[in-house]
Design a protein around this nucleic acid. Structure first.
Lengths: 341, 341
DNA sequence: CTGAAAGCGCTTACAG
DNA sequence: CTGAAAGCGCTTACAG
């Protein structure tokens, strides 16, 4: 392959001059600059990434740590990845995708080897075992998901407490008195998926304050289990008039369950989920939902990470914990409860 | 960070000896080897990836070119990515994910800069504009998807012709005489998605040979359009007793459509799709299907790519075009046509 | 079995 | 405005 020495020779200048002419980091006569650039284009010169990284200590690559866990819903994960990838590209960074089940190991490898200038962690758990590695690494990191300890990293997440409150308040205002909340599986919590109880606790407290009965349960993250569970749940709580879903698999399964029961929303049951608009479209879900904004969170994380990498964030600028406010996307699946006798 | 010089000094040997002790590429006395390795572990030494790449001309990274096109179904794409990522990791390679809308540009950038040792192209089109770039690149490439010209690359794809034949034959055997085939949107073909007509043409020919009426149509790749289209289609072809789906969005939308029409499969209508088992589970699709094996295709592509990269494939070994045979996963949605009068 | 040295392809102070 | 040289951190022939 052609290297910068070839370009310099063909342009009749020194390698350093060729480098400066291409980077613009030092002024070069117009004539030389144009000649070098023309020659570089003609020869099809592209800098060797390894050599450049070695010389500059910058790889122009961002590490993306995603995990495809069997108890998380893969299509939901994809949207975060897309948000991160698109924003990184626009900022001039490539993405090294580490989907290793051994998260800490993968993180240590890509940071220690200087393959990446910074790192985005997806699916962050309460006590995420990747965080000690990240804090010890020389590169900055941005998280999507709220851990117990946020020191040394920038954190972005949906405001799940507010989401829990908003969901209950919305149905309270419509006059509902008995609700069901289906959350993710219990082992998501055990693994440290704090968002599950953050939403649930806020929902329970709001319900208590407003004299509403709220049945909080956990549901499976896959078919056909979750479908059976939803049936059993609706059987056992005939008085409930509203269904809140903090579980993507449950949301995806619900249309079929409702059809099978000859129920419709909101006529027979008000339904309110928590997932992204893109998710709703993919699964053609007709239910109103709290927007979880994965693309937006991915974008925010990358933007802040790039600021840190490029030292646009003043040295010592405090780390941020930023919550995205939940917004309700009304798809017409909530209404006052039906009259019963 | 600690580099190999630090390790060498701490172990009291030359840098070259340290390097050999760690790599094992030349015999080193047991004593020295153990000492170097212990010291390296104590200091937490990890080789600098850029320096190593520069010295060896190997990055140990595989480029993955995926595109999230609005007319392709994103969750289906994810499974190929997972197959590629998992296999690459097991082979000791990291993944550089390029989801750039400008595929050729991204490919040129990551190959010219030597960021990657090889490349996997997903979603390959009939006349894919990334192929000329790939052929000109010094790195080997593996494709998932069949282009018109396969020279210089290894190609892996589902045997869509055989899939089309198998679908029609299966319903013929059950006694169906009038079928509908819903393919991907027409612009997928225009963009070069050859698998659409490969399956369709084979299905049409098989139907013709067997005296079966086959209505071949294109469907949208998103809700709610595809739902409406399915309704209109079933309205306009009341005599059809079997529905073939080569369109993931249509498959995902069909359960709702059938419920709305008070139809069930296979009682009222036999249904046969073409998607992966994982896809069926995610969308809880109760329809039999031709397995599209995305994980397997991703795995095959990476395995062959790694062979080429590591020269385990003898110099000049011919390039392969390998088709995965379609397998029918029976979920009980096909049966003899209902008796009508 | 081990060491000193060259070289991979860049960038960037240092001189002029 | 430009060039010669050092250095980033590895690996690997070349010597002994």
């Amino acid at each position: 392959m052609v290297n910068i020495g070839d370009v310099a020779r063909a342009a009749g200048v020194a390698r350093s001059t060729a480098s400066y002419a291409l980077s613009g980091k030092r002024s070069v006569s117009d004539e030389v600059r144009d000649r070098v650039r023309r020659v570089a284009a003609e020869l099809g010169y592209t800098p060797n990434a390894g050599a450049r990284a070695l010389a500059t200590s910058q790889s122009k690559v961002i590490g993306l740590l995603a995990q495809f866990l069997p108890d998380e819903f893969a299509p939901a994960m994809l949207q975060y990845i897309q948000g991160v990838a698109n924003t990184a590209r626009d900022a001039g960074y490539d993405i090294l995708l580490a989907s290793d089940p051994d998260g800490p190991g993968a993180l240590k490898r890509i940071t220690d080897s200087r393959m990446v200038d910074g790192v985005v962690l997806l699916n962050v758990a309460e006590n995420d075992d990747r965080l000690p590695i990240l804090r010890a690494a020389p590169q900055p990191g941005a998280l999507v998901g709220l851990p117990a300890d946020c020191t040394g990293v920038d954190v972005f997440d949906l405001d799940f407490e507010e989401a829990g409150r908003a969901m209950v308040e919305h149905l309270d205002r419509l006059g509902h008195r008995e609700l069901i909340l289906v959350s993710q599986p219990e082992h998501v919590i055990e693994r440290g998926g704090a968002y599950v109880w953050r939403l649930q606790n806020a929902a329970l407290e709001t319900a208590r304050n407003r004299g509403i009965t709220l049945h909080a349960v956990h549901g499976s993250s896959a078919q056909p289990e979750i479908g059976r569970e939803l049936h059993a749940l609706l059987d056992s709580r005939p008085g409930a008039t509203g269904l809140l879903l903090n579980n993507e698999a449950a949301a995806a399964a619900l249309p079929t369950v409702l059809h099978e029961r000859r129920l419709s929303a909101p006529g027979d049951l008000s339904v309110l989920g928590r997932y992204s608009d893109e998710f709703a479209r993919t699964f053609s879900l007709p239910f109103s939902s709290i927007e979880s904004a994965p693309d937006r969170l991915g974008r925010m994380a990358v933007r802040q990470l790039v600021r840190r990498i490029e030292h646009q964030a003043p040295e010592g600028e405090p780390y941020v914990v930023r919550f995205v406010s939940p917004e309700l996307v009304d798809r017409g699946s909530t209404a006052p409860p039906p009259n019963r006798h």
